[in-house]
Structures are given as C-alpha cells and as structure tokens.
Amino acid sequence: MGKLFEKFPDPLARLIVVVVAMIALGAFAYFVLIPKPVKDIDFQWADAVKREKARPVRYAGFQACEECHGEIQIKKVTGYHKDLSCETCHGPAKAHTEDPDKVKPTIPTARTFCPQCHAYNPSRPRGFPQINPVAHNPLKPCTSCHNPHDPKPPTTPKECSACHGEIARMKAVSHHVQLECTVCHQAPQQHKISPRSVKPTKPQTREFCGKCHGKDATDKLAKNAPKIDMGVHGEKYVCWQCHYPHSPEVEQ
C-alpha cells in the first residue's frame, strides 16, 4: 500500500484503491452472491419454454370429440359443416373430456349465434350462405329448421334468393331488377337439392346479351335496354369481362 502511494501521485493512488475495491466487490457480487438462474440467459429461456409448454389447454381439439361422439361425426362428415371443429360452436371442451359428467360444453341455441357467421355482410366472401337475420323467420331459433350438424335448407327453396341473397339484393337495385334469374340461367330441379353437384347454366356467348342489347334486338324484353353495335363494341371480349350482369354499371 505504501509503495503504491509512493509510486503514483496521491489522488491517483487513492482512485486506484477505490476502483480496484469496486471491481472486486462487483465481481464478488456477480460471481459469488448472485445465483445462476438470475444471470444465465440460456437457463431462463429453457425455463420459459418449459413454463409455456405447461400452460393448460382449454380447447381439446377435434380428434378428442370423435372418441365418444362418433355418431355426430358421421353425420357431420358429409355435410356443409364437415370442416367445422366441434368447439367452434360448443366452446372450449378440454374440461369436458376430463370429466364428461360434471362439465358440459355449451349448446348455443340463441338466434344471435348462427348469424355471427351467416348474417349478410358485404365483406363476406361471395357464395358464403348468408341470411338477413331480421327478415329470416323472425323469432324462431335456427335449430328448429336447420340441423347444425348437417345444415341444409329445410324445404326445397322456391326462390333463388334463398341461397343467392347477395346477388338477389344486388340485382334488386340494379338496372336488371325486372329480369328473372331464369332469363339467363336454367336451373335444373336437382340444383335445389344438391347445389354443388348440379349447377345451373350460365350464358356462354356475346350473342346472348346481344339478344337485348344488340343494335337491332327484337326480344320483347329489349324495349328499354341500352343498345350497342355488337360489331364495334368491345368485339374482342365477352360482355361479362367488363360488365357485371347482376349490377351492370352503365352510367345514365
């Protein structure tokens, strides 16, 4: 110590003592006092992963339901709801799988439940079955007509709008409001029962539209229709490449 003070100027010597003491103290605290889990990041990460993995599961997953509810599974597997997980509607059911008698999953019956998916919403993808929950059989629970495990229209629909509501509503405010769907589409009776396997026809050619919109159209529906010269009007294209027939966007 004395030597240190001789060798260095007084202030420097004192600082050296202080700094060395601080480093020693810090090192002692870090290496001896502080337990490893607090300072080892790999340990902390492994611990966090372990804790994360040990969190309780609430949704049992679709395979779990099959074990006991096979009969519903068989019914569901051919229907429109075949890709739906049971817990999408019945809620988390892990507790139910562990103690089936005591904990029962919910059975949603309220009329507000199904419209969460099936109420009409212009943002929903085209073709997704949608209804107007206010106008669609008010006050009746959905399940009184539809079986949620194999949903189908309860009776053969009479109107196209029963399924194609979006198109119907669009057409209703368009210039084509007067046209029946059958003017352009022929729907076989079978389409109403298995809509995906038997499809209605669609017009194939420019001439079909030309029957009303051609320069010399003679069809009785063509009376007030805007007329164009089929020879020069967009001859390269079929009409519905530019115009959407359910809501033709002609500016008047």
Partner: peptide, 12 residues
C-alpha cells in the same frame, strides 16, 4: 477519499 496531499505533484 482521505486525501491530504496538496503538494505540487498531486495538484499537477
């Protein structure tokens, strides 16, 4: 830091 040195070397 219990310094008492006001000598030339220390001040310099």
């Amino acid at each position: 830091l219990f310094s008492r040195d006001k000598g030339e070397r220390a001040v310099a």
